[in-house]
């Protein structure tokens, strides 16, 4: 009987190999994440659902008060398509510039990500693929959330 630690590390190694194998198989299939998510139709549906959810989310809808939501929906689609190797050019501003004056907090950034998860759920994209998209978006926190932001949310008591 090997020691519990060796057994545990052995299982961990095995799990890592399976995960790496899965990742390699997905790559070798030649499918981009964009394809695996369901292509343009699915991603446009996701972004549309996302805008609907976000509009009724009191945690963050105030940040879009002066935003042309049709244009925003198109730009978000372009950005997600671009990030997931769908081959679209992204014609919007960079994340730092786009959020320069919004004083976005971490909670607001996370609320937006939660709304995106919810949108993916509504169009039945599997959670493991949702995470691959959010993993690409998460580092944008560094550009979107500035140091010591003060929420501009009118719903928060000052």
């Amino acid at each position: 009987m090997p020691s519990p630690m060796r057994l545990w590390l052995g299982c961990l190694g095995l799990a890592a190999c399976i995960a790496a194998g899965n990742a390699a198989r997905a790559e070798s299939g030649g499918l981009t994440l964009f394809d695996r998510l369901g292509g343009e139709a699915k991603l446009r549906a996701t972004v549309h659902e996302f805008v609907l959810i976000m509009e009724s989310d009191d945690r963050i809808n105030f940040t879009f008060a002066n935003t042309d939501l049709k244009k925003f929906e198109q730009l978000l689609y372009e950005q997600l398509c671009n990030l997931t190797q769908g081959g679209c050019p992204y014609t919007g501003r960079d994340m730092y510039t786009a959020h320069a004056k919004l004083n976005i907090t971490n909670a607001e950034f996370n609320a937006l990500a939660e709304d995106l998860y919810e949108a993916f759920d509504r169009v039945h994209v599997p959670y493991r693929l949702q995470n691959k998209v959010v993993a690409m978006l998460a580092p944008m926190q560094h550009d979107v959330v500035k140091d010591h932001p003060v929420s501009q949310n009118p719903a928060v008591a000052k």
Binding site: T105, A107, E108, N110, A111, S151, A155, A157
Partner: peptide, 16 residues
């Protein structure tokens, strides 16, 4: 509460 803050003033802002 699903608003921006709960009764204790927490934003409950982290991921599940």
């Amino acid at each position: 509460t699903a608003a921006a803050e709960n009764l204790f003033g927490s934003d409950e802002g982290k991921f599940l």
